[in-house]
């Protein structure tokens, strides 16, 4: 079966699969960023236990393989009194992993600011809250555009873990399995999924580069 036949037979499922992959990527990335910001706030807070908790959190979730986390969510949590749907498990796992990397990006964005900027802000009379709002957040956001673009692409690739649990519709990697178990499409299914991943990555990467050019801070 060639690529065209795969489309005529499975086009409908493929369309829903692509959309679902994109949606999951968007949800996981947004959730990961939000959680990453929260964790970063803990990590830069002046309260020692919160800093330690934030650091431990990041080390746990940046070092755990996503599958290892996924099996805990899917198979172990029900024994501990929490049964979640497959999709919830997947989204939660990817968000946790993404948030730890997002926090690492934010931290290096903050580290790039330089003590002099903060001291200058202090000496014109800005309060702590103003310094965070006017200097720390804008500067760290603008320096993290490229790393965050890469993280977005990595998020897209991580949603492939969805192939390890039953999802309807299956996401792009699961589609290879789905098509293979229903026909002899073989390589065609792989090619279609590969093109979808590569195409999405290229577009996201291009957008990220454009945005970075616009907001990059020359130091």
């Amino acid at each position: 079966m060639g690529v065209t036949e795969v489309f005529t037979t499975f086009g409908d499922v493929y369309l829903r699969s692509v959309l679902s992959t994109w949606l999951m990527t968007a949800v996981c990335f947004a959730g990961g960023l939000a959680l990453g910001i929260l964790v970063t706030v803990l990590r830069v807070s002046p309260v020692k236990p919160l800093r330690v908790a934030g650091d431990v959190y990041v080390q746990l979730f940046r070092n755990i393989p996503t599958v290892s986390l996924l099996v805990i969510f899917v198979y172990a949590l029900p024994y501990l009194g929490a049964t979640l749907s497959y999709r919830t498990c997947l989204l939660a796992c990817v968000i946790l992993v993404v948030s730890s990397f997002a926090s690492e990006n934010f931290m290096s964005g903050i580290n790039a600011i330089g003590v002099g900027q903060i001291e200058a802000a202090r000496s014109i009379g800005l309060t702590f809250v103003q310094i965070v709002r006017l200097i720390v957040i804008p500067q760290s956001l603008r320096t993290t555009v490229l790393p965050m673009t890469n993280l977005l692409i990595a998020t897209l690739l991580t949603t492939a873990m969805g192939s390890q649990v039953p999802l309807t519709p299956p996401e792009l990697t699961g589609m290879v399995n789905y098509v293979n178990s229903r026909s002899v499409a073989g390589i065609s299914a792989f090619i279609v999924s590969a093109i979808c991943y590569a195409g999405t990555s290229v577009v996201l990467g291009w957008l990220g580069n454009k945005l970075d050019e616009k907001v990059r801070i020359v130091r």
Binding site: G114, G116, E119, A120, R122, S123, G125, T127
Partner: peptide, 24 residues
């Protein structure tokens, strides 16, 4: 500390060796 310190700093200008203009 606090707002009182910030208010006082507003009245005392400071020029650094490394300029420290806000880069963004």
């Amino acid at each position: 500390e606090g707002k009182e310190l910030a208010a006082l700093r507003a009245k005392v200008g400071m020029v650094f060796q490394s300029f420290n203009l806000f880069a963004h």
